[in-house]
Design a protein around this nucleic acid. Sequence first.
DNA 1: AAGTGGTCTAGACCACAGC
DNA 2: CTGTGGTCTAGACCACTTG
Lengths: 252, 252
Amino acid sequence: MSTEGAKRQPKYQRIADELRDAIQSGRYQPGDRLPGENDLMAGHGVARMTARQALGVLQSEGIAESRKGAGVFVRSFRPLRRQGIKRLAQSQWGEGRSVWAVDTEDRTLVVDQVSVTEQGAPERVARVLGVEQGDPVCVRSRRFVLDDKPVLIATSYLLASLVAGSAITQEDTGPGGIYARLAELGSKPVHFREEIRSRMPSTDEAEQLKLSTGTPVMLICRTAFADEGRAVEVNEMTLDSASYILEYAFDA
Amino acid sequence: MSTEGAKRQPKYQRIADELRDAIQSGRYQPGDRLPGENDLMAGHGVARMTARQALGVLQSEGIAESRKGAGVFVRSFRPLRRQGIKRLAQSQWGEGRSVWAVDTEDRTLVVDQVSVTEQGAPERVARVLGVEQGDPVCVRSRRFVLDDKPVLIATSYLLASLVAGSAITQEDTGPGGIYARLAELGSKPVHFREEIRSRMPSTDEAEQLKLSTGTPVMLICRTAFADEGRAVEVNEMTLDSASYILEYAFDA
DNA sequence: AAGTGGTCTAGACCACAGC
DNA sequence: CTGTGGTCTAGACCACTTG
């Protein structure tokens, strides 16, 4: 054994480490192709499955991604900044601005797969809205696509009895969006709570967001409150974690 | 083929799907042992590596975790709630309360691996603090362990010239922590910004937080500002995503 | 057409957990 | 000790991308 000493880690880990170092030191740039399975087999004298396992490590770390028939490549990132408090300031939606305009920075954001239906409230939503499970709610779903890459899926739940007949039940909610309409209905949102979690995506989520392996999702559950602490909307969002930085700024 | 029609997915996916359904329908509860590699080989008539791949899917989704020599088990979760704005309200630290006391909910939280050193500022920190890269900063690191499970690693950076001689350079910062001391030094934090990202952990992070495979980390970078928008602290935190729900509540 | 990654098989030896 | 998952080999066929 030429390299005496530290040799207690498996071969595939040593290969993965070597590639990771090469990436972090800049020898491979974002978008570059890494040595393929055949290269690693030849270069390290190892079986196919072992070379494959090494590349699998980098993919599950989110550092590299494979493209069928082409190779394994170093991933590149260019996240959006989502300003959680500023975006919901009244000046944003009070005058008919789209809340989404603020963080796109000259890239094109398309809204996709819009659907508006009336359904029975799921248990967790019913609890927050203060109704019974199965009570009718208006469910608004939509997907946001940035430069052909889906980055966010959002589903809003609102009390059907509250929004019946308003533009909220239409695909186009009009200037200022849902919150401007709620204000007109006498349920102006004055307080918000956002809860954030992160986990690996389900198969469905990975498909809808076109996520490459090793990419977690961030989940934001926002509740909008009108006066008296009355919850008027629950919005569940699923974000591609590689596409977003969330920002919250506030005073002590 | 008995089940005609939809048979275009690989065997390992079908096996994984079947197990996932069984978990989500409650047939396997958190903590339960799943069928092992041998069971799947026998039950589905597949090779070892295929059964293994199926179990690997569930692990990389964070749904299951393997224990060497024992089996593969359904994971269980019990996250903390971290109230991002409330925790930094002045009433919390103004009277000597530990900011961490608010969210432990009767479980025991231990602070671990405390270190206080003086180093040259890394580039990204220097930029935020408004100094030159390499300028001396006080670096405070610590790890938080909840019921024997590490959940958070935090590293604070403060201008060395600002905090020299204060308790901030000691392991024990005294009642009210860093922010109370900064206030005494005439740099009371009045504004905060928190930036949140998520990604898969590095090997180091996975070790320090004892993460099981398929668990992302959440990164919080908090900047504390004194009067005139002067940045006085940068705090980089790495959280086990399975242990935390972040919460931000604010008015429109 | 050649090369790539994706799936799959049928073996092997090892370290570790639990009985 | 027996069974478990972790590593590793040496083949195979396939679908896809690219030149």
